[in-house]
């Protein structure tokens, strides 16, 4: 399985996304990370290029709904079907909202790394 972790928008908080990257790597999952301040278009380009199974968007500035809508539009526009999840400082009420927009899952801060790893593994299993 190949995961692309990304930092869309201008938010510079990257401790969490890097912690998750370490955790996924330790679980034997192939992880790629975009680095900071990527546009949604750049992130999708990279996901296509590496043929990612899952895209993770890490957002802590409160911009998650705006960016999730952009993500949805970008995928629709290009007729792509990626499994994508959002992580970060997300209010409980926005988790459903993110799923309505089109995210497959959303993880609020405080979620254990192991929980996210298990989720990713389960996605892979269901696919096979």
């Amino acid at each position: 399985m190949r995961v692309l972790l990304s930092k869309p928008g201008l938010d510079g908080h990257d401790v969490g996304v890097k912690v998750l990257a370490h955790g996924l790597k330790e679980a034997g999952i192939e992880v790629h990370y975009t680095g900071l301040r990527k546009s949604i278009e750049e992130i999708v380009n990279m996901a296509v290029k590496i043929n990612a199974d899952i895209i993770g968007l890490s957002i802590l500035s409160g911009t998650h709904l705006v960016l999730a809508k952009k993500m949805k539009e970008e995928l629709q526009k290009r007729n792509l079907n990626f499994h994508w999840v959002v992580g970060g400082n997300i209010p409980a009420k926005d988790i459903d909202e993110l799923k309505k927009i089109g995210a497959n899952e959303a993880f609020a801060t405080g979620t254990k790394v192991s929980e996210v790893v298990l989720y990713f593994i389960s996605i892979e299993k269901n696919k096979n």
């Binding site: 990257d14 401790v15 890097k18 912690v19 370490h22 955790g23 254990k112 790394v113 192991s114």
Partner: peptide, 13 residues
Amino acid sequence: VSKQAYEREMGMQ
């Protein structure tokens, strides 16, 4: 630094 952040987070978890 990011490796230490991971170790710290694991230590907490």
